[in-house]
């Protein structure tokens, strides 16, 4: 068991920052092994394995119903896994729940806040439960997120309620932020502000587990990504690696006739089209074999469309289904 020497609080003032110590830096922020969660005959999670390193932003991508929220609720010990093991900052959320939750902050996807309380009252209540939150940072975050904490939560729009939840998460100075669809209902300006806050938190050493189905958001924020579908991880890697797995459209203009026989033998090439000296195709996987063929023939110009994560994501889904 790891001895935690992270943030401690006293009378609303954070005494130390939430940076991992040298002793704890080797322990991953999150390690999930063989996680299974069934609801009777419904298999919500069918064996998820993943590891989130300290200080990274980890994107957890998947469509609605893929098992993202179920996985997150198991991490927080709100759900009890059917099988598998979860370690959060080296601790078991079941047996060391209080210690784990002291070090993590959570923004639920389906946000339900006490409607009769004001934002200030909610922040004060959570501060008492967490042993204190920094009041000066509360004001700063409220200004940055543009939320009025003096208003009753029931009088706030869903977007503003989400800002309150985000404020609570970033205010906590937790070592691990678990954010489930954090920008749901936020306008583009606030989505941008959220990304800034996430980057700042990451720079301060905080790990972020970012669950989302908004690909562009994950693409901009995440260091590494896991794609989940039907309760299983179907791909995992850096954003660049996922992008590399995406299909990309390639157009090549040769000086002479295209070497179609050679090109047809390339792995992952499909939808080939030859029009005079032009060769077009869709390429899956690495581009290196194509470049090797092109190096042996005079090429006038070529165009390779940069694949984005949307494309990679959809390809993965099509492959998995």
């Amino acid at each position: 068991m790891t001895l935690w020497t992270g943030p401690t609080y006293a009378q609303g003032v954070i005494e130390t920052a939430g940076l991992p110590t040298e002793a704890s830096a080797d322990v991953p922020a999150l390690r999930i092994t063989g996680l299974v969660k069934d609801y009777g005959r419904v298999h919500a999670v069918r064996g998820i394995d993943l590891e989130v390193r300290r200080g990274e932003v980890f994107g957890f991508l998947g469509p609605n119903g893929a098992g993202k929220t179920t996985t997150i609720r198991c991490i927080l010990d709100l759900l009890r896994p059917t099988a598998g093991r979860i370690e959060v900052l080296g601790l078991d959320p079941r047996s060391d729940g209080v210690a784990v939750r002291q070090r993590i902050a959570y923004v639920p996807g389906e946000l339900r806040l006490p409607e009769r309380q004001t934002g200030h009252q909610l922040v004060a209540a959570i501060a008492r439960l967490r042993g204190g939150l920094p009041a000066d940072r509360e004001r700063e975050l409220a200004e940055r997120l543009g939320v009025d904490l003096s208003r009753r939560l029931r009088d706030l729009s869903s977007g503003n309620r989400r800002k309150v939840a985000l404020l609570l998460a970033f205010l906590s100075n937790a070592e691990l932020l678990v954010l489930d669809e954090p920008t749901n209902g936020l306008d583009p300006l606030m989505q941008h502000e959220f990304l800034r806050l996430a980057r700042e938190a990451r720079e301060a050493g905080t790990t972020i587990f970012l669950s989302s189905h908004v690909l562009s958001e994950v693409q901009r924020a995440a260091d590494r990504v896991a794609v989940v579908r039907s309760g299983k991880i179907v791909a995992q890697g850096t954003v660049e690696e996922l992008r590399g797995r995406a299909r990309q459209r390639v157009d090549v203009w040769f000086l002479d006739a295209p070497p179609t026989a050679e090109l047809a033998l390339l792995p992952g090439i499909e939808d080939q089209l030859v029009e005079g000296h032009r060769f077009a195709a869709v390429l899956s996987g690495p581009i290196q074999p194509l470049l090797e063929v092109l190096a042996r023939h005079p090429v006038v110009t070529m165009l390779v469309e940069e694949p984005d994560l949307d494309e990679a994501f959809l390809d993965l889904y099509e492959a998995a289904s």
């Binding site: 709100l78 959570y106 389906e110 806040l113 939840a165 609570l168």
Partner: peptide, 10 residues
């Protein structure tokens, strides 16, 4: 659904 945020506290 109002216990979600509360029970995520320490």
């Amino acid at each position: 659904g109002r216990l979600e945020l509360l029970l995520a506290q320490p």
